[in-house]
Amino acid sequence: MPAANKHNGASPETAWAELMRAGLAGDAAAYRQLLEAIAPRLRKFAVNGLLRSGIGNADAEDVVQEILLAIHLKRQTWMQDQPFLPWLNAIARHKLIDVMRRRGRRGEVPIEGLIEILPDEAAAPETSHSELNKLVSRLDGKSQTVVSSISLDGNSIKDTAAKLGMSEGAVRVAFHRGLKKLAELYRAGEAA
């Protein structure tokens, strides 16, 4: 059977790869749609992984958010002529293993990838005490103001620039730096 056959029906490979290609070319709406489609699968993936390793799934949503951040920050490592799902799986696994290691568990991750598991239809839980909120408060000066304004208060880059009296370019730079720093803080996490 030709390999293409595998990607019919349930597998989102083709659709996701197209959204990712559009996103990388600058289409923010497509990119957002992709991340929204990925999130429910990540949720199930994180819950499965955490339960299996005996950590408990109380903070699965933190893991989902950390994986989403990694997908975003490492998006340039997907080669557009290669399949998308193996790339996505590799990132999700890598971060889940990292989370387990930080909690002193052996990095045993479910063998099945994101595609084999059914998405969790349950809506994203309200996470008022999310890890990410704590980490944002540990960012320094400008990064913290910018990331809070955009990620927590939901302001646009433009509005944030106007509010803070910065250029849009400067806001973009500070925002991107802030996101990178957040990924680092996650990694250093737990200990702090």
Binding site: G23, L24, G26, D27, A28, A29, A30, Y31, R32, L35, E36, A39, Q65, L68, L69, H72, R75, L132, V147, I150, S151, G154, S156, I157, R172, F175, H176, L179
Partner: peptide
């Protein structure tokens, strides 16, 4: 978070 990642510019 997703909205803000999209805002960071894909």
């Amino acid at each position: 978070l997703i909205a803000s990642l999209a805002a960071d510019g894909p």
